[in-house]
Amino acid sequence: MSAISMILVVIVAFFAGMEGILDQWQFHQPLVACTLIGLVTGHLTEGIMLGGSLQMIALGWANVGAAVAPDVALASVASAIILVQGGQGVHGVGSAVALAIPLAVAGLFLTMIVRTVSTAFVHLMDKAAKEGNSKMIDFWHYICLALQGLRIAIPAALLLVIPASSVRGMLAAMPDWLNDGMSIGGGMVVAVGYAMVINMMASREVWPFFIIGFVIAALSDLTLIAIGALGVALALMYLTLDKGGSNSGSNNGGSSNTGDPLGDILDDY
């Protein structure tokens, strides 16, 4: 890997680290981070495919309140670097996905450390506030943010220093049954992310939508966009009917004017 590629990888890692806490531009999401690392190292296709696989697993990972989710930033960046260094091309995606999981846990500990260290900097902000010095408040805020960036950039740089041949040797040493088994596990592990999301959202009102979605997906001709459009339409219909019901007091009041001329004609017919 050329020096320029290495520098760019570290910069991508730094951004992923900052976004890991900010959660705004989504540079830390696998889809973006792995693609960027693939781009700067000249392995774009592998990067995109790894990003897609990891994104599927990480769909439901989110920081809610003070709870910290497994860290996608380190998982995406480090596994993308390993994929590139391993030199197995597209075939390496399966094992890179499996490696991402322990990395996500490691990243989780790193962010918890930085979040604790930030507590000290906030006290320095208090001091700056007392003195009426807004420049110093800004400064300490940037320092905390930079620490979050370094949290990913430093491990990324370390991974780059390890010679590609030893990464390759390590990956080649993995037997086929382990590789295939990990790919199979990767296909199932997606369910955990979905389960997390469902646990957050499920209520008696929304379960029917889940059932319809599940059944409709079996029609393999429908793309995800088409399914999404159906979902929007169903939700809108439900909300409209629900609102109409509570406003007029009585639903299904017979042949009342529903505002739909065609419907009225059919009703009268």
Binding site: L59, A191, Y194, V197, I198, M201, A202, E205, V206, W207, F209, F210, I211, I212, G213, F214, V215, I216, A217, A218, L224, I227, G228, L230, G231, V232, L234, A235, Y238, L239
Partner: peptide, 12 residues
């Protein structure tokens, strides 16, 4: 609602 609908599809 929308989310649950799509989740059902995604799991399938």
């Amino acid at each position: 609602m929308m989310g649950m609908f799509v989740l059902g599809a995604l799991i399938e």
